[in-house]
Simulated assay, not measured.
Amino acid sequence: MYLIFFLICFIASAIGAICGIGGGIIIKPALDASGAMSVAAISFLSGCTVLSMTSYTVIRTKLEGASKINMKTGTPLAIGAAFGGIAGKVLFEGLLAAFPDKSRIGVIQSVCLLIITIGTLGYALNRSGIKTYQMENMPICLVLGSILGLLSSFLGIGGGPVNLVILYYFFSMSTKVAAENSLYIILFSQVTSLVSTLCSGNVPRFQPGLLILMIAAGISGGICGRLINKKINDKLVDHLSVFIMVVLIGINIYNIWKFIH
């Protein structure tokens, strides 16, 4: 089990670092499909893995002086994501308390992920014909960031392709620039989500060794993903993102079926 978890987290984190999707949108449904742990434990561990990967990637890029983060819009988005991360965690814990049958929460998360992924795939396939904007209004940035943070925290995915759609559409960012800004936003939302969980005392049960392993996979995946991202162009990143979304649609459909039955 440990080897399988490491491979899933490593591959997901590498893809997340390349595409700017965080990796949680792969880790969460993949581990849900395995049925190895509770929904709450998977959400928590997925979030910690994504946090480790984004922390390494964002800090390393900053130290190298190669950051493409637009601080004027990226910081308000990240601050909004931080507050949204808290709201998403509160919503998730509220549903945990409301539903004795935890599989219902799994269904809700999987349906939300399926809808988001299908919508994002549709945008990606028609992106060239969609008009984009150059948003700089701070209140709007805060609102958009809050929405992204809420989805990220509630679903335990760390971010996902929806971040990229927002950055493409509202801020006219290129693929690689959007990927880096997305990781910056994810970092803030995951920090506040983790702090919220720790402060509320609602940390689910899991094997400590598994957490260490997944964090190691997140960081090593981030290292690998950064190296690959430097060597490929925007077009290849776009193709990889589309492929991953198609795979995720299939996984989420399976998870919905599994949780219902």
Rank of each mutant, 00 (worst) to 15 (best):
Y2A: 09
Y2W: 12
I4T: 15
C9Y: 03
I11E: 02
I11S: 12
G16P: 03
I18Q: 01
G22L: 01
G24W: 01
I25Y: 12
I26F: 10
I26W: 02
D32A: 14
A33T: 00
A33R: 01
S34M: 14
S38R: 00
S38F: 05
A41Y: 09
S43R: 09
S46N: 10
T49Y: 10
V50R: 03
V50A: 05
S55E: 01
S55H: 05
I59D: 01
R60S: 15
T61A: 09
E64D: 10
G65F: 06
A66P: 00
K68A: 07
I69L: 15
N70Q: 12
M71G: 07
T75I: 15
L77S: 08
G80T: 00
A82W: 03
I86E: 00
I86G: 02
I86S: 01
I86F: 12
L95V: 07
A97F: 13
F99I: 11
K102A: 01
R104E: 09
V107T: 14
I108T: 08
S110L: 12
L113G: 07
I115Y: 07
I115S: 12
T117F: 05
I118A: 12
G119D: 06
L121A: 05
G122H: 09
Y123S: 07
A124P: 02
L125G: 00
N126F: 14
Q134H: 14
M135W: 08
M135E: 12
E136S: 10
N137T: 10
M138E: 14
L142Y: 02
G145M: 03
G145R: 04
G149F: 01
L150Q: 10
S152K: 13
F154H: 04
F154Q: 03
L155M: 14
L155P: 04
L155H: 05
L155Q: 04
G156F: 04
I157N: 00
G158F: 01
G158C: 01
G158T: 03
G160H: 02
L164R: 03
L164W: 04
V165W: 02
L167R: 05
M173T: 05
M173S: 05
M173K: 14
S174L: 14
T175N: 06
K176M: 13
K176D: 02
K176S: 10
V177F: 12
A178T: 04
E180I: 08
Y184R: 05
Y184Q: 03
I186K: 02
L187T: 06
S189F: 03
S189K: 06
S196M: 10
S196C: 11
T197M: 05
C199P: 00
C199L: 12
V203N: 11
R205T: 09
L211R: 13
I212L: 15
I212N: 09
L213W: 02
A216K: 03
G222V: 01
I223T: 05
C224H: 06
G225T: 02
L227P: 04
I228R: 07
N229K: 15
K231M: 13
I232S: 06
K235M: 11
D238E: 14
D238F: 10
H239D: 12
H239R: 15
F243D: 04
F243C: 15
F243N: 09
I244K: 00
M245H: 06
V246H: 08
I249F: 11
G250E: 00
I251M: 13
I253S: 09
Y254N: 13
N255R: 08
I256P: 06
I256E: 09
I256F: 08
K258A: 15
K258E: 15
I260F: 14
H261M: 14
H261A: 11
